[in-house]
């Protein structure tokens, strides 16, 4: 168990160092949520009575949708495809590193990235006069579950569909962007027609947004968002199981074809 944990930390460390060195990617991962927060903050400033309250209202959706969607879902997809293309996946397979430890390392790394992005988004929100009204621990739990949902799906897409880097964008955009729109990332879900609003109940991003907005804006407690948390817990378990299965199948294919 300690070997798995140690190896997971080592993998996470490596992923984060590589990210820090990949300045262009890092820059865009910071720029994108920053621009989105500023843009939507200004769009809703009049409606919410100033930039501060508008940022408070907008920040959860931007963090979960614009920031973590691309880092925690797109990140694992690119990572797996990159490992395959650089042949390092084969090298890892030839080492004593277990698949569980690798998976754990990628999850850890993306949790760290999500925390960094949360710091940026809420740093800007506080700077604009907005804030986070509820329990920070509850907010962290929502972030954790959201990251789990995304990473599991990222593993699934990366292992299942993305053979080359060019193949990454297609499946992520085709599935992910509609989920973002339906999940109320960029505008209130109340604007959706009734049938789409009903459909949105099955969208994990909807539950991420609802839960974090309730905690951040209204200071909701765990009971108030229990339904969202249960959904996210279930979805995280399913997506991790799906991701694990796809990852194992991919390793099987890599072993046979290596």
């Amino acid at each position: 168990m300690s070997a798995i944990l140690f190896d997971s930390v080592r993998v996470a460390h490596r992923v984060l160092i590589e990210l820090m060195r990949n300045r262009r990617l890092l820059f865009f991962w910071i720029l994108f949520p920053t621009l989105m927060l500023l843009l939507f903050g200004w769009v809703y400033a009049d409606e919410y009575g100033g930039l501060g309250p508008s940022f408070t209202w907008t920040a959860p959706g931007i963090l979960l949708g614009a920031a973590m969607f691309f880092s925690c879902l797109g990140g694992p997809v690119s990572l797996i495809v990159g490992e395959r293309e650089r042949r390092t996946l084969r090298r890892l397979l030839l080492s004593p590193l277990s698949g569980t430890a690798y998976y754990g390392g990628v999850v850890l790394a993306h949790l760290a990235i999500a925390l960094g992005q949360a710091a940026i988004v809420y740093g800007l929100t506080y700077a604009a006069g907005g804030g986070f009204r509820g329990s920070v621990w509850l907010g962290a739990l929502i972030l954790f579950l959201s990251a789990m949902c995304y990473v599991g799906l990222g593993f699934f897409f990366g292992a299942r569909f993305a053979g080359r880097t060019e193949d990454v964008t297609g499946p992520v955009a085709a599935v992910g962007v509609p989920l973002l729109v339906m999940g109320g990332t960029f505008f209130p879900v109340e604007l959706l027609p009734p049938f789409l609003h009903t459909l949105a109940q099955a969208d994990p991003i909807y539950h991420m947004n609802m839960a974090l907005k309730a905690v951040a804006q209204e200071g909701a407690d765990i009971k108030a968002i229990a339904l969202n948390l249960f959904f996210l817990l279930g979805f995280a378990a399913c997506s991790l199981a799906l991701g694990t299965r796809a990852y194992r199948q991919m390793l099987g294919r890599e072993r046979a074809g290596a």
Partner: peptide, 23 residues
């Protein structure tokens, strides 16, 4: 392996430390 299989953004020693660690 026949092909170069290294982490390009890591230094030589960082690659060695990573692969040594997982061994």
């Amino acid at each position: 392996p026949q092909e170069i299989a290294l982490y390009q953004h890591l230094t030589c020693k960082e690659n060695l430390r990573f692969f040594g660690g997982i061994h």
